[in-house]
Design a protein around this nucleic acid. Structure first.
Length: 220
DNA sequence: CACCAGGCAAGTA
DNA sequence: TACTTGCATGGT
């Protein structure tokens, strides 16, 4: 291994960016809609999340206060297409309660809190794990946090940049310790990894095509 | 038909 | 700490 991880990570980003272009993430009309989407997409295809969000939108439920007031059964009925609807209805209500009670429903105010402290608060909410918390921090609050998902682990361990048995924190450190912290770069990088997976991981078993080798080469 | 999706929490050993 | 299981609809 001769080139630094920084160079490798930047190179892979360039390959992905040239192959897929700007992703325009997160697909949402408001910061709170990002929060909703982050919960609903847990172990669920985004296509189904879109249907659930459309239902919430039609029912005028896309505000912390409205969700907070709605009974769990009502929320569950609206988000049915996204799967795990009973569990996710409780989770949505809990996060809506947090934003309503702690921040008076003001996402901007919430996002002004120091990143590490806000992350810990989000993680203390039942139903908000590391990936969901980091997605909210990056895509709703525009904070420079790298979001790790199963694709990230798969692709970068497979390409020898992390241990197969590495956990979330270890993969996150790979990116955050070796790249300049920038909301813009972290936003784009994670979105590109997801696009990569959508494109090459359709065929089972998981990512057997080792997709980076199929991308156009770039001289660094 | 089987398998998995932009995870998380709770239970067990 | 390290596994295992439940959650559940919809696409391929």
């Amino acid at each position: 291994m001769s080139i630094s991880k920084r160079i490798q990570l930047e190179h892979i980003f360039d390959l992905l960016y040239q192959r897929f272009g700007k992703r325009h993430w997160w697909p949402a009309d408001s910061p709170f809609e990002v929060v909703i989407g982050a919960v609903l997409t847990q172990n669920t295809a985004w296509k189904n999340v879109e249907k659930a969000i459309a239902n919430l939108k039609q029912a005028q439920m896309l505000s912390p206060e409205k969700l907070y007031r709605e009974p769990v059964s009502g929320i569950a009925n609206l988000i049915r297409p996204s799967g795990f609807y009973n569990q996710k209805a409780k989770r949505l209500k809990l996060v809506a309660a947090y934003i309503t009670e702690t921040w008076n429903g003001d996402m901007d105010a919430m996002c002004r809190k120091e990143t590490g402290a806000l992350r810990n608060e989000l993680l203390s909410i039942n139903g908000i794990g590391k990936e969901t918390a980091d997605s909210i921090l990056l895509y709703a609050c525009n904070k420079p946090v790298f979001v790790v998902d199963s694709y990230t682990h798969r692709v970068f361990s497979r390409h020898g940049m992390a241990a197969e048995e590495a956990g979330y924190d270890e993969i996150q450190e790979l990116f955050m310790d070796n790249l300049d912290h920038g909301t813009r770069l972290f936003n784009e990088y994670h979105a590109l990894i997801v696009e990569l997976a959508k494109t090459f991981c359709k065929t089972k078993p998981l990512c057997d095509r080792c997709p980076l080798s199929d991308l156009p080469r770039v001289t660094v």
